[in-house]
Every structure is written in C-alpha cells, then in structure tokens.
Amino acid sequence: MSRKTILLVEDNPDDVMLTQRALRKNNILNELIVAEDGVEALDYLFARGAHAGRDLRHQPQVILLDIKLPRMDGIEVLRHIRTHEMTRLLPVVILTSSREERDRLETYSLGANSYIRKPVDFQQFMEAVRQLGLYWLVLNESPPQPSGSVNTCPPCAS
C-alpha cells in the first residue's frame, strides 16, 4: 500500500463514490481516506476521536476539501490546518461545486493550494481528477515532515 494517502473531506456519498470511481478509472490507487465532515477531518489529522492512536507521522499527500460540510465547514477546517504547526504545510486542494467568488477569495486567503470546481459533466470531472492525481501525487514534491511536533497537543476542535 502506497504511503501517499489522499484525505477526501466530502459529505455527499455520491460524490465520494464518483471521486473513487474517477480515481480508480485513472489508475490512481493511493489509499483514500474519507472524512464526512470537518470535525472528522480534523480528528483524522490530529489523531483524535475515532482516529485516536493513528500514527501521526503519516499525513496525507494531499487533502481534497469540500467547502459545504456538516458540523464544521471546509473554510474552518482549512483555518485549523493552516494554524497548527503540524499541518500548516499540508497541500490542500479545494474541491467544490461552488464557483462563488467569496469562496475562492477566502480559501486562497487562508492558504489553499488549489481550487477546483467539480464539473457536472462526469467526463470533465474524470479529467479533472486525473490531472489532480498526476500533479499532487506524482509531480509535486511534498513539504518535509515537521520534526518534534508529533506529540504536540492538537487544537481543540470545537
């Protein structure tokens, strides 16, 4: 199993399924971890709750983050990721249906690495996922793992 994992934060099971299909169809076989909302995403990243005890040295290669999420939305998740020392360098790709200007502005301001709009047309979606996988999993060199921060207490996800 590849150590380069993908964290998909997506509440819509259809979208999850279609994303998986697109990855699979594009032969991107990296492990896909799915978090259904913002809280769960942070739990995973900081090894809490259901993910307590997870090896924090293994962080996803890329996080695909939806904006509209139950409990904690993508913007808030991004803010936490960028605030915390341990996660602040993780590549985050916003993957959303919205093309709203304020969403783009806000996420880029918070340090999103990319903003991709999910097209309605599945073929286009496939193409997008293909390029995304190629870029973030193959071409892109990930930042070095921050050292000595493994045992840092994660921020309180309220």
Binding site: N12, D14, D15, K68, E100, P119, F122, F125
Partner: peptide, 15 residues
C-alpha cells in the same frame, strides 16, 4: 451554487 449542482453531477456521473 453548492447544492443544486451536486445531484446533477450524480445523475450525470452514474449515468
């Protein structure tokens, strides 16, 4: 913008 397109994507995707 967020929600109305998701079902369409499902319709198109699963078709």
């Amino acid at each position: 913008s967020h929600d109305l397109r998701a079902p369409l994507r499902s319709i198109d995707g699963f078709s």
